[in-house]
């Protein structure tokens, strides 16, 4: 399974889940408030060391491959859909009813690229977190934030069934194709309709699975009145607190950026100039520092935490 967590004993895997969670929230937040394409690209590049130290290059790349495709579409669609911008690169000669003549502008192209940097940086960070946090630990972390156990647990179980569901889709598709059922017959809408035959059987399988799962859990005393204990609770060491603090500082820094309107960038009507001066450089460096910090300091865990 390409997208599933694998137990690799790297320093990135051993970072406290809370640290990684706050970090990924930070990146998401950063990608929302920052629109400067260079800063976005820098954020993306700063996530790459996590991938290498965490030995998840192959899995991470599968996530990214999908995103690159999506980015390509974003850029193309934005080029045609966005009619703002003053530097016209090309005007489509034939007129389209209502819309008129479509023009492609340089600003729209750069805007599309900027957006895809935003997407790629976010997905990269989420991929890193998904691939390096053990779902059991994630569950514990959510519980530590005082979320109700049953809700958290049910969600966790539901995500566990995802691979089973995907597997069902594959087998059922194969089964229908071997019965001469052509999924690609007809136009787009018809194709979607032809795919919909899978929905009910999939639902029925999932329900059966849910019942079986509930039975098995009940038979192992799930939902008994006693207060639940947690085996192998994640221990939070001093070093962990240091990392959690680092990620929290990252959030604080981002908040300041938002407050002082740093990192915003106007694409339209014409691109803002970017002055690479001392203040710009220092903002970029602090940003890179915070994104990179957990990876850079992660070997500390090996030094200070036994086991």
């Amino acid at each position: 399974m390409k997208f599933a967590y694998k137990n690799k004993e790297t320093v990135i895997h051993r970072l406290h889940p809370a640290c990684k969670l706050i970090w990924v929230i930070g990146i998401l937040f950063a990608c929302i408030i920052i629109s400067d394409p260079i800063l976005l690209l820098l954020i993306f590049f700063s996530t790459v060391p996590f991938v290498i130290i965490g030995k998840i290059v192959k899995e991470w790349f599968s996530f990214l491959k999908l995103t690159l495709w999506l980015s390509f579409f974003i850029i193309v669609i934005n080029m045609f859909a966005s009619q703002y911008g003053s530097t016209i690169l090309y005007v489509i000669p034939s007129e389209i009813p209502i819309v008129g003549k479509l023009k492609i502008t340089f600003e729209a192209l750069v805007f599309g690229i900027g957006m895809s940097f935003r997407l790629i940086a976010t997905i990269s960070a989420f991929a890193i977190v998904t691939l390096t946090i053990n779902p059991d630990d994630l569950l514990q972390t959510f519980l530590a934030f005082k979320l109700p156990y049953r809700t958290v647990f049910t969600t966790a179980i539901a995500t566990r069934f995802m691979p089973c569901l995907l597997n069902d889709v594959d087998t059922m598709t194969d089964s229908l194709r071997t019965r001469a059922y052509n999924f690609n017959d007809g136009k787009f809408l018809q194709r979607i309709k032809r795919r919909s035959v899978l929905i009910l059987p999939l639902l029925s399988n999932s329900l059966e699975r849910a019942i079986q799962s509930a039975e098995a859990m009940e038979s192992r005393a799930f939902g008994s009145d006693t207060k639940r204990t947690i085996y192998k609770k994640i221990e939070t060491t001093l070093t962990d607190y240091f990392f959690i603090m680092l990620s929290t500082l990252f959030l604080v820094f981002l908040f300041l950026m938002l407050l002082f309107n740093i990192g915003s960038y106007n694409y339209y009507p014409s691109l803002d100039p970017i002055y690479i001066n001392v203040s710009y450089m220092s903002v970029a460096l602090v940003l890179i520092f915070f994104v990179l910090a957990p990876a850079v300091f992660s070997p500390l865990k090996k030094v200070f935490d036994l086991d």
Binding site: Y5, N7, N134, P135, D136, I157, R160, C164, R209, Q212, S213, E215, A216, M217, S219, R220, A221, F222, G223, S224, T226, K227, R228, T229, I230, Y231, K232, K233
Partner: peptide, 30 residues
Amino acid sequence: MVFQDPENQLVAMDVEKEIAFGLENLGFSN
């Protein structure tokens, strides 16, 4: 009680955690 399909009976990520599940529910100490 053990059922037919092992796939649908498992709740945790690794073997130790899976085995611990029932005892956790009953509030046993670590």
